[in-house]
Design a protein around this nucleic acid. Structure first.
Lengths: 118, 118
DNA sequence: GCTTGACCTGGAGCGCACTCCAGCCTGTTC
DNA sequence: GAACAGGCTGGAGTGCGCTCCAGGTCAAGC
């Protein structure tokens, strides 16, 4: 009989993270709490995996653990819509600023590559 | 009589870094070695400040200290042009990848903002 | 000549985001 | 029923990029 959801090893492979990172994210409140089977082992549902995908995407963009915990709380609870939107817009602004910094840096590298006959 | 170059305090203010960070960058070979006055105090020339600007720009984009040390070595020495160009192109690719990750994340945030009636 | 302020060095400490590990439990396989 | 794979917890350790500090030098102002 097939059990519901994925074991942590499979979830980690699917998400491109380690098992330790997945447990760490759960401890920190970025994910879950994830359901358990009769042996106390985690079982990741499709929803969990989808959410882990979002968290990973934002993490890759440089959002910190504390921001992601807040993000998770705000989207899970029926929090003040105003507060939620304000938070999301602030994070968005940060990411846009970071993208601008990246564009600057790429330009600098291009100049150097150019100058040295890349 | 005016001394050549800026003292570390002024350089730090000009660069938007702390004095400790400037000394750290020098220890790590990202900057300088910076000239000294008769008292052994650092004096930052215009060239130093311009270089610090480049380093800061790349640092803000997320390049690590080891990469920046290598960058500094390669641009200072008359290194293999091939090696130098290859290095610069690899870093460039990394930054472009990071920008793509940022674009993804911004899209995710936009969806959430949208969904919650931002 | 004494205080003040800016700077020096070498080295310890810190926050973040993992990462690893000991010691334990459980379900399966032979 | 012994061995093994895979998972569990709590807590310690790691690497990075600073950041802070003790203890000292030096020049200028009073």
């Amino acid at each position: 009989m097939t059990m519901h959801g994925m074991a942590i090893g499979d979830a980690a492979r699917a998400a491109g993270l380690t098992e330790d990172t997945l447990r760490y994210y759960e401890r920190e409140g970025l994910v879950g709490p994830v359901g358990r089977d009769s042996a106390g082992h985690r079982r990741y549902a499709d929803d969990d995996l989808a959410w882990i995908g979002i968290v990973t995407c934002l993490r890759d963009a440089g959002l910190g653990i504390a921001d992601l915990r807040r993000f998770t709380e705000l989207l899970r609870s029926a929090a003040e819509p105003t507060e939620r939107t304000a938070f999301l817009l602030r994070r968005r602004d940060e990411l846009v600023a970071r993208r601008d910094a990246l564009d600057n840096a790429i330009t600098v590298l291009d100049e150097k590559i150019d100058h040295y006959g890349g």
